[in-house]
Design a binder for these strands. Sequence first.
DNA 1: ACGATTTTGTTCTCGCGTTCACAAACTCTT
DNA 2: AAGAGTTTGTGAACGCGAGAACAAAATCGT
Lengths: 240, 240
Amino acid sequence: MTSERSSRKGGRSRDPRGERGIPEATVARLPVYLRALTSLSDSDVSTASSEDLATAAGVNSAKLRKDLSYLGTYGTRGVGYDVNYLRYQIAREIGLTQDWSVVIIGIGNLGHALANYSGFASRGFQVTALLDSDSARVGEAVGGLKISSLDDLDAIVQDNTVAIAVIATPAEAAQEVCDRLVAAGVSSILNFAPAVLSVPGHVDVRKVDLSIELQILAYHEQRKAQGVLADLDELEAGAI
Amino acid sequence: MTSERSSRKGGRSRDPRGERGIPEATVARLPVYLRALTSLSDSDVSTASSEDLATAAGVNSAKLRKDLSYLGTYGTRGVGYDVNYLRYQIAREIGLTQDWSVVIIGIGNLGHALANYSGFASRGFQVTALLDSDSARVGEAVGGLKISSLDDLDAIVQDNTVAIAVIATPAEAAQEVCDRLVAAGVSSILNFAPAVLSVPGHVDVRKVDLSIELQILAYHEQRKAQGVLADLDELEAGAI
DNA sequence: ACGATTTTGTTCTCGCGTTCACAAACTCTT
DNA sequence: AAGAGTTTGTGAACGCGAGAACAAAATCGT
Ligand SMILES: NC(=O)c1ccc[n+]([C@@H]2O[C@H](COP(=O)([O-])OP(=O)(O)OC[C@H]3O[C@@H](n4cnc5c(N)ncnc54)[C@H](O)[C@@H]3O)[C@@H](O)[C@H]2O)c1
Ligand SMILES: NC(=O)c1ccc[n+]([C@@H]2O[C@H](COP(=O)([O-])OP(=O)(O)OC[C@H]3O[C@@H](n4cnc5c(N)ncnc54)[C@H](O)[C@@H]3O)[C@@H](O)[C@H]2O)c1
């Protein structure tokens, strides 16, 4: 969706190793369920039905039940799901029982916003380094961290066992930065630059592209407008 | 995708009006093709084959050809596509031959970055207003615009015939802001707040959720790590 | 003029994802 | 204890999207 699909072949179909895999579409929804469960838990709700959860997550309840069924049978028929128990199970499945170290490359407009964002830490993602190639920026403190030089990348990735990196550089620099990240051992990348990244098969790339989102909205908006015009034409043609 | 599907029923299947619709998955890729074409055009390439374009866009060439076939038959067999002609046709189809007026609500960390971003204007999206509820922020100039009060929303939307709004407020405020936008006549919303928005059927919502993206990466990362462990076990068990 | 070559547009097939619908399993009431 | 009422988990049907494969259409070389 909305985004570049993972480069690995998806699906729950038989793995070489025989492990059960969760469908990609389901993986993308689990975080939404997690958020809904956290919200319910904060309101001291201890049990919720698939209908309740589905409403909170903005999906249809059959889909939610099927999604959860890939994790195991954590519900009780006639009752529903234990909010805290299910929350833990989803968190475990996604891998949020451990903390993840994240580095951000390119501390410009967007990089600053990301570095100052508190919503990552609260979900188990610890920003451990900020990197920029601009020597004028190196040393500057942002969100409690000092900006490091890109030359320190290898050392930083090793020291913090970083698996996830965020690219917020201009598009021209994205592929080169990406290559250096991969060489340093990073195997998951979130890319904000409007560029197609090419990576080896074991590396996952996801992209966030605001211009594309706006263009998709524009397409539908244009269609709505055309519909209105067509309706007007029908009226003028005396179709009613 | 990465993102909340459009609320309208998708697909190219027969419309009540009988207009041909473009599949949602194709719509999401057209902007990528557009970017690739622009890049080729800037390098003075006048003709490109589906293979060339597919490589530049990071997709498979059969998929690209099929996508383009929904727009019309703009290629020449044995030759390829005229870069500028195709670029114009895609832009027209998406609705980029007109300019779109965009407003941003919530000018905090992220809102500032968006307001300062030049990449929107260059793709036909004109940011015409910045709104915030914090009276201390109203009047502040950001990226050549002054922040307006949320109370002026109705007037601003009317004056600029705004169809598209970007929500960058905290999650708690998102639904209320959304309701006000819809009431003012906005029918396309790009939501950055980690909240499920409920809107009437004629309004399109797309969401950009960084925490979800990171969690999806974490899931795959965890799986890779488990795979390595399993391999180690096999080794220890003398499987080789 | 014509065969070889290139490349598009489209048909066909397969697999994934969504949704419906219902039996199974649990609780609650009497 | 038994029947009524809930709610889960899943089998089955269906539609959309991806990709392989190929016929049709254009160019090029001779
Ligand atoms: N600002 C936004 O709201 C926004 C919105 C959508 C997309 N984007 C995209 O995000 C990216 C960043 O946008 P921005 O507005 O922050 O840009 P920016 O120019 O403000 O910041 C880019 C930063 O990257 C650094 N940089 C450049 N080359 C580098 C390299 N090789 N290695 C490391 N750092 C390098 C620069 O020094 C600068 O600090 C761009 O690709 C942009 O298209 C930004
Ligand atoms: N900063 C990031 O990098 C980042 C990343 C991912 C998601 N987000 C999400 O984006 C949203 C904004 O993040 P941020 O870091 O900019 O937060 P922020 O707190 O810096 O900014 C929020 C802004 O919204 C304004 N606001 C609050 N209520 C409002 C209302 N009812 N109407 C209009 N304006 C209102 C506030 O005055 C403030 O200026 C949040 O929902 C956040 O979760 C941010």
